[in-house]
């Protein structure tokens, strides 16, 4: 009845709302935690103390180097056909505009294909992408590649409709990439509303002119840490079940949902197991990644350092898609392993959360999954998640303590049982 004990403690017992309260304290104290920022390093130090104070074992910080880009003053104003201030957020790693800004006519397109078809019109313009939202993985291509594709056809800057499932005039940010040999141009996201408005204007043949000013700055890479804590295994201590979330966030809102929720339910999983006096046969390792938003930079260096032990990792878990009410566990692994995970998830029947779905993944754990280690991630209401993702709305106000309790219970049961089974999860 260990599973019931974990569920009772997390959802009905004295640990109720603990992960929510811990998260609120951190994000209210520190705020957003952009890669390379002092906020992030402050959060890492606070978590280091938290994990020690919680009595977890082998608490340590593993040094890594991470990108350091900072947002400066930024503004976009539509000058024609009328004056309209455009809410915007520069994209991570974007270059700045000249001091006087870029004032240019706009070309509105709804896809890369349309941009190609109308390439001859793009030279010297600001390209506005009004791409429809399909799902995050498909639509994010416009955020990450928008500047490169626009620069290839001679554009001066790109403004991209926020990758969001819903908008209340809320711009979203995120990382974007330049490409060797292609001129770097400033790039930012605008709101769904403004992208759609300019699309309508363009369809009526109205000329649109925007003045864009961005004072972003890229610094040399900064020092940072992945934060690690454990419950050392009682029988196979060298074997590991890794449970994780990322401590960095974008520089908007509080980073409570992305990925404060994942961090704190992962910590809560170890706290629940420790509170019950349990010690699994394998080591349960909590890792709080740094610089995930820049492409899993901290996690990649952790993988490089620890991959020598890849055969000792039974399961890697990352929660980085929200901690609203879970609908199931996403899993990647062999059929045998999946069958075992279905049995493990059946222990969560009391919460009626027993589904095992495909596509277990996480930017920070994908390195291990590609090396053959079974991987798991928490699935919840992704439609709601992308309302707030990478926007000023990512605050404690979207978090729900009861839902976090349930998410923590799922995370704790799965990680503990897999860590305590006599055999590791099979890979063939």
């Amino acid at each position: 009845d260990i599973a019931k004990a974990i569920i009772n403690l997390a959802v009905y017992g004295k640990a109720q709302n603990r992960s929510y309260e811990r998260l609120a304290l951190l994000v209210d104290t520190v705020g957003p935690r952009l890669s390379g920022s002092k906020n992030l390093e402050k959060a890492i130090q606070i978590m280091y103390q938290n994990l020690q104070r919680d009595g977890l074992e082998n608490v340590h910080l593993e040094p890594v180097r991470i990108p350091h880009w900072e947002r400066g003053e930024e503004s976009a104003v539509m000058l024609e056909p009328r004056t309209h201030k455009i809410a915007m957020l520069g994209l991570g790693s974007s270059i700045r505009t000249p001091p006087e800004g870029i004032t240019a006519e706009v070309l509105v397109v709804t896809s890369f294909d349309e941009l190609q078809r109308r390439a001859s019109e793009a030279r010297g313009k600001i390209v506005v992408y009004n791409q429809p939202y399909v799902n995050y993985s498909k639509t994010v291509q416009y955020r990450t590649q928008g500047a490169v594709e626009a620069a290839k056809v001679g554009a001066l800057a790109s403004l991209i409709r926020s990758v969001a499932s819903f908008s209340i005039y809320s711009p979203h940010t995120g990382i974007q990439e330049y490409q060797d040999g292609v001129p770097k141009i400033p790039t930012a996201c605008i709101t769904v509303e403004d992208a759609e408005m300019m699309s309508r204007m363009a369809a009526r043949g109205i000329k649109i002119v925007i003045q864009l000013k961005m004072v972003e700055k890229t610094y040399p890479d900064a020092d940072s840490f992945n934060t690690v804590a454990e419950i050392t295994g009682s029988k196979y201590p060298e074997q590991v079940v890794l449970v994780s979330g990322h401590l960095d966030s974008w520089d908007v809102g509080q980073g409570a949902m992305d990925d404060g929720g994942g961090v704190f339910i992962s910590w809560e999983a170890l706290s629940l197991i420790k509170d019950l006096g349990l010690r699994p046969k394998r080591t349960l390792r909590l890792v709080l990644w740094t610089a995930e938003e820049q492409g899993g930079i901290g996690a990649f260096q952790y993988y490089q350092l620890h991959k020598v032990n890849v055969s000792n990792y039974s399961l890697v878990m990352e929660s980085d898609a929200g901690t609203f009410l879970p609908t199931g566990l996403q899993f990647t692994g062999s059929e045998k392993a999946r069958a075992i995970m279905e049995e493990v998830m059946s222990l969560l029947q009391p919460l009626n959360i027993t589904q095992v779905l495909s596509h277990g993944e996480g930017t920070d754990i994908n390195f291990w999954i590609q090396a053959g280690v079974p991987g798991a991630s928490l699935l919840d209401d992704l439609y709601k998640y992308f309302f707030f993702h990478h926007s000023y709305g990512d605050t404690m106000t979207v978090m729900d303590p009861k839902q976090m309790n349930v998410a923590a219970a799922v995370w704790a049961v799965v990680s503990y049982v897999v860590a305590d089974m006599e055999e590791m999860l099979p890979r063939s």
């Binding site: 074997q239 055969s311 075992i340 222990l347 590791m424």
Partner: peptide, 24 residues
């Protein structure tokens, strides 16, 4: 030692099921 990677499990799936059930 417990079996990992491409090793051969020493247990039948039924035994693994019963082991997991013991946590419930």
């Amino acid at each position: 030692k417990s079996i990992y990677k491409n090793g051969i499990s020493k247990r039948t799936f039924q035994e693994i099921k019963e082991e997991i059930a013991s946590y419930g």
